[in-house]
Structures are given as C-alpha cells and as structure tokens.
Design a protein around this nucleic acid. Structure first.
Lengths: 346, 346
DNA sequence: TTGTACGCGTTATCAC
DNA sequence: GTGATAACGCGTACAA
C-alpha cells in the first residue's frame, strides 16, 4: 500500500508473487495466461480491492478514459436528454463524461476542438447536432485518432460513426395526420438554416403536402431558429395571412410553445381555431395548454446507443451486440390538433 | 518531438538549453527564476506551441485537472443552468467539467461517490442541492482531500465551501407582494421534504403571513416534489378548498406550470380568479400563459462563482478577488398576479 | 538560481 | 506463459 491508501499494481504483484506485467495481463484480459496464475491474481485483486489508476493508464496508453460530449446545440432540454442517455450507457463502466460546448460560428471553433482533443486525449467523442453535421470535425477526429460517433437527423456517415433518426419520414407522417384531419392550409415554422434537422423536417413536410396535391406557397413557410421567441415571431407572420392557416407544423416543441403564445394573444382557441404539431416531445410539450401533439424524438436512446458504440470492445467484451444506428420517431397525439372549422372538401 | 507530434517538456528543455526542472518551474510560475532564463524558456514554449500533458501531470501530482459536477437534482433546467455557469468559469482554464449524477436514496450513494472521487482524483467538485446539503458528503470530500463547494438555499458551511442564495427572504418578499395586492387566502405548494430549499421557501412564506397577521391553516399547504405533475396534484387539493385561495405561491416554476394547468382545467382565469407566484425563473416561467411572476434564482451565477472558488489560486494567480458567497434572489413581475376579485378589507 | 536522480502507476518490448 | 526493464511526461528532493 502506498501512502495514498490505494493499493497499486505492485502490491498485487508482490502479494500474488507474480510480476507487474502478469497483473497487467489479467487486467487487460490477455488470452495467453495460465488459468492458475490468473485465478491467483484475481483473488488478490478482489481481496485488496485493487482498482487500476486511471491517470497512470492514461499516461501509458496515451489515451484517457473519458468520453466527450461535444455540442453547440442551443436547446437545453435536448442537450440534457443526450447527457442522460450517455450517462446511462457509461454507468458502471470505467468511463466518465466530460462536456464540451463549442462556440458555433466562431472562426477558431475547429482549432479549439483540436486543442481540446489533443490535450485531453479523449477515448472518444459524441458529436451532437448541428456540429455533428460538419464533416471537417469528423475528419479532425479521425486525424487525431479519437473515436467519434455523430448524432443527426439523417445518415451522413457509416454505421460505426453515426446514429440517426428519420426526421423526414416522421414529419411526413405527422403532416399526413394533419391532412387526414381535413386541414388544407397548413403552415410550417422551419428550423434554422444550416441545421440538417431543419432541412429534413421541412422536406418531410413538403413530401406530405406534395403527395396530397396541396400547394405550398412560400408565405406558408416561416423561418425560426428553434427558440420560443422565434416561434412566436414566426406565428405572428403566419397568423397575419388571409386566409389564415388552420394548422401549423412547428419544427420543434419550443417554437410550438411560442406559436401557442401568439395564438392565445390573438384570442385564438387551440385546437378549435388552430391546430399545432410540434417535434421533440420535450417536457414542455406535455406541460403547455393544451398538451401538444408532437413527434417523439428518441434522442436519449440515440445518445445511449452512440455512447455504447463508442466504448464497444473497450470494456468487458461482453457486449458484442451491434447497437442500432437508425431510430424511428413516433407521433404522440395529445390535445393540440382537431379538424378545421371550415373543413373544405378538397 | 515524440511520435505523437506533441512537443514534451524534454523538447523544450533541450532547445532552450536548460533542464526539465527549469521548464517545470516556468510552467508552475516558481518565483525563484532568473528573468533571462524564464524569458528564453517562454520563447521556446511559444515557438513550439508546447502544452503540458495533463495526463502526466495528473499522475505526478496525484490530482486530475477535472472539476466534477455532482448532483442528484431532478430538475433538468436547474442542472443545465449550473453547468452553463460552471463552464463559463472554467472556459479558458486548464480545467474540464465532468458530470456525475448521483442516485439519491440509494444506500450505496456515499460509497459510489467515494469510489468516483478516489479513482478520478478530481481537482474539486461542485455539489448541487439536495446532495450538497448532506454533511457526510462534505466530510467525505474533506477526508479524501478533494476540494468542494456546496450550493444551496441557506448558509451551511464557511465561505470557502459554500455559495448560497437567500431563499427565505426572497420568498418572504414575494409573499408580501401578494399580500400587498390584497390577497388574504394564500396557498402554498411546498417542495419535497428533505430539501433545504423547500424548507427555506416555506419559512419565508410563513414569515410573511405571520408578520401580516394572516392565519395559515394546514389545509392551505400542499406538498409537492418540484415536478409539474406534483404541482398539478397539489393545486387540485388547494382549489377544492371552500373558500378557495385567491393566490398560490409555488416553491418552483415547474410546479407553478402544473398549477396553471389545474386552474385552466377548472375554467379558472389567471390572474383574475387565481394569482400565482413561482420560484426559479426558468424559461418555462416566461413561456407559460400568462407569463409567470416568479422569483429569479441566480443559480448560474452561483455555479460560476462556486467554480471560481474551486479553482482559485490554481491558475494564473491573476484572480485574487474574493468570489461572492451569498446571492440575492429578486422578484420578477409578469402576468400571473392581480388583486383578488373579492378583495376583503383586512 | 539551476541541475540530477528518482517517483508517480501503468503498459510495451523482448527476452527467457 | 512469464518476468526484468524501459518507456509515458511531469513534479520533487536534494544537491550543486
């Protein structure tokens, strides 16, 4: 025992009457080991409660036992869901989660990330959208030799490096639901330019309208940036239209909450005068009034899967099951959708 | 240069024609150093872009350059605000943030934390409520030799180990505001037992009512656990009362959102039929309808200050300004409070 | 003021 | 199969 109180590999080696290297082999599950020696060493390890020192391992392996969460996502709830999914995957493993926000739009963003990765020698990083959509970031990770998995709303990398949801299809289905309710004048509050999720969701919306033969004038699309305020502003524009849309699809829940606000300020009743569908299914969706019909984005499960991909093969070796790479979003029907008052027969 | 591409302390020493130790002294700002040598070494460091390897330092110093966020807080937005405050403080420093959720109520919670701290050798930890209120946790940190700062709603430790808000006073002021509006039948939705914040806020509520000579029957207090659902359930009980309270103070915003929901389900208009005041000022407060009058809890600033306390003296040495330990919460007046309809003259 | 030798706890090399 | 011995990159006695 050292003065720190923690037993070291030397203690184990001495007591088990073997060399350090043999202990190391036991720890790292080297296949070429006599079963007797292995057993003896394992017993001593258990008896001493020995745990390998992560700092020393990091130095020797030139690699830390940390998984990074790299993101520049403005949505608090989304970030937290991802964290929870990651933590769940990492729980009980030797890995810890370190969070690293990135300053989107900063010219030195890539340099900052490089410094971070080179210095910390992370085992791997989980890339959240929208930075995950940046190919140069992925290439940087590759070049540095840091494992990575990208999360996103469309498949833009191979299975080992990607966990995606099918936003386009999910929004198409949600929009078809609106159409099936009788809506024909349907507005879209889109997400910010440059976000793949925004693009995919918009495409799904257009797919559904196109398939139903419904025209989509440019005025029916209002841009937002995933914030409550932008949703409110977008709704103002949409609700000024004559005739007014009878339904709005919002590219995320937070903007949908803004839309509800705007509608209420005009004395519009939801869903009687206006139907709304959101995307994400964050807690806010269930807590606004009326409860929001929305698309459930399984972002926590995706993050969990991504983290497992990251550490696959690194631990017990017990998990050889392939983690899923594509997740399906489902429509959650609550109280914010009803048939339009002026149901036209198309 | 090593094969890794990163220059090491040896490279610097060799090129600057000094010993490793001298370079080490420059890095660690040892006072006893010839200015010439220092300058020469600093030049080489800049030229090479040398950055000390954190893993090697961690091993030698038996201490990592990581700050832990230890929490068992159920409120997502609160956790995220704290993270943002921490990150802000850590930005540009050599420290990274690792997040460690704790399983409250778990019998092995303390053991889990001990393992975590002993293994990772964190530089320090930020303790969030409610686990921060647990004295054995603080003693554990002390025993292990890990710096810590506790966040909370009351001062329960010395300045170096505590950043607190004055919830009791803030709630007293908020309640006085309600009383000044003419309310006499005021309900309280309390926080969960065992949370110091819940206790302080309740005490502040009782202080105000007592000072105004208003009786507080037990039926006017409903317990919640800081969740939306619990707020909704508590409101059900309060609104069943005859006569009904004309105002409710909610111990946090999320429960206040639940109260709004319950009121709306009964066709009650806010603030006409019922005034509501919340606590926290999370985004939800501004996004519900009507916008919630609430107490702004400066949790992000508190976390920032706590993190700075943690790393004080560890970095440049440039910051010798004492970080504040007590933060004041302020009342934010929005749309959820109005005088009662049946304004009695007390 | 500066340098030498060694320790931190682990993994890797290459013998046996 | 197993064991000396040398990395890994930095900090600290102690000496000079």
């Amino acid at each position: 025992m050292q003065k720190t109180g923690q037993p070291t590999i030397n203690d184990v080696a001495r007591i088990a009457s073997v060399s350090k290297k043999t202990v190391s082999r036991v720890i790292n599950r080297s296949p070429l080991l006599n079963d007797d020696t292995r057993k003896r060493v394992e017993d001593v390890i258990a008896e001493l409660g020995y745990i390998p020192n992560p700092q020393a391992r990091a130095l020797a392996l030139r690699r830390n036992f940390l998984i990074g969460l790299v993101h520049d996502n403005p949505n608090a709830q989304t970030v937290l869901n991802v964290q929870q999914g990651m933590l769940e995957a990492l729980h009980g493993s030797e890995f810890e989660m370190v969070v690293r926000p990135l300053d989107r739009g900063s010219a030195t963003m890539l340099e900052d990330l490089r410094h971070f990765l080179e210095r910390q020698r992370l085992f791997g990083v989980l890339l959240m959208p929208p930075v995950s959509e940046n190919d140069s970031v992925a290439r940087l990770c590759d070049a540095i030799g840091c494992r990575y998995v990208r999360m996103g709303s469309a498949v833009i990398d191979d299975n080992d490096h990607m966990v995606a949801s099918n936003d386009r299809e999910a929004v198409r289905i949600a929009t078809e639901y609106l159409i099936a309710q009788g809506h024909r004048r349907i507005g879209l509050v889109a997400g910010p330019h440059g976000f793949r999720s925004a693009r995919e969701r918009r495409l799904g919306f257009e797919d559904a309208l196109g398939a139903a033969g419904i025209a989509l004038p440019r005025s029916m699309i209002a841009d937002g940036n995933y914030t409550f305020e932008s949703g409110l502003a977008a709704a103002e524009r949409l609700l000024d239209l004559m005739p007014r849309p009878t339904a709005i699809f919002s590219s995320n829940d937070e903007m949908a909450a803004g839309i509800i606000h705007a509608a209420r300020q005009r004395g519009l009743d939801i869903p009687r005068d206006l139907s709304i569908v959101g995307f994400d299914d964050t807690p806010i969706a269930a807590h606004v009034w009326p409860p929001l019909t929305t698309v459930r984005w399984p972002i926590a499960s995706m993050a969990r899967s991504a983290a497992l991909k990251l550490i696959a093969g690194a631990d017990d070796g017990s998990d050889l099951v392939e983690e899923p790479s594509l997740f399906l979003s489902t429509l959650i029907r609550r109280g914010s959708v009803a048939p339009p008052l002026d149901a036209e027969t198309a």
